[in-house]
């Protein structure tokens, strides 16, 4: 039974791989003449988006609505994990880290914070942005926890909950606030840069907390006698 299922999956997999390879192989030559090319449009409207990096312009302006929902996905994953973590001992102690890890963390974390700030600022005109900054900051928090310099998190208090939702709330508020101009997230060109920076700053904080939380709410006390 199991062997038959594997054989079936293998056969269908090979067929799918062959079909995909053929479809991908023949596309560039057969690309229909009417096909849309968004690249000139992205560049043409770049000066109305308030940022100069095209990927950031797509992420936060042209397709900013995708990003809004994506932040909701992350927030939701954290809430679902809180349910799994359940009621835990609120006095979770951090494990004792090895001396090497402790000195590494002490040396690295200031650099991590600096890097996070730089990435946030850089996002407007080169690769970078809130997500990258938040990921780096969260990595710093994980490092601190592994080194025993920061406790794992029990169920979140009001301030932590507020911090976790702040970025999403700011984003949602801006999106709705701009509805007066006719559409969600319809930035006025002269304010677009400032509003995007506001959203990105809020997101850096909240996503950093969220990504750190995905680790810190679930981690357990280890290695204690």
């Amino acid at each position: 039974m199991r062997g038959a299922a594997r054989l079936l999956v293998a056969t269908l997999g090979l067929a799918l791989a062959a079909a995909l390879t053929r479809a991908i192989g023949e596309l560039p030559a057969e690309r229909p003449s009417q096909a849309v090319d968004l690249r000139p449009q992205v560049v043409a409207h770049l000066d109305q988006t308030g940022v100069s990096h095209p990927v950031t312009a797509v992420l936060l302006d042209y397709r900013g609505y995708d990003t809004l929902l994506e932040v909701a996905v992350l927030a939701l994953a954290l809430i679902a994990l809180l349910v799994l973590a359940g009621a835990r001992d609120a006095r979770l102690c951090a494990p004792a880290g090895s001396p090497l890890l402790v000195s590494l963390a002490r040396g690295l974390v200031p650099v991590v914070v600096l890097t996070g700030g730089y990435l946030l600022w850089a996002g407007a005109h080169r690769p970078g942005g809130a997500f990258q900054a938040a990921a780096v900051l969260a990595a710093g928090a994980v490092l601190l926890q592994l080194a025993g310099l920061m406790p794992a998190w029990a169920s979140p208090g009001r301030w932590l909950r507020l911090g976790l939702m702040l970025g999403f709330g700011v984003f949602l508020g801006v999106a709705y606030g701009l509805l007066g101009r006719g559409a969600l997230l319809d930035y006025p060109p002269q304010w677009a840069g400032a509003l995007i920076l506001l959203i990105e700053t809020g997101l850096t904080l909240s996503l950093g907390l969220t990504l750190a939380g995905l680790f810190l709410f679930l981690t357990e006390r280890r290695g204690r006698p």
Binding site: R39, V55, V58, L59, R63
Partner: peptide, 9 residues
Amino acid sequence: PVPQAMVLT
């Protein structure tokens, strides 16, 4: 940049 942003999402 459009699919690049989509993939980041």
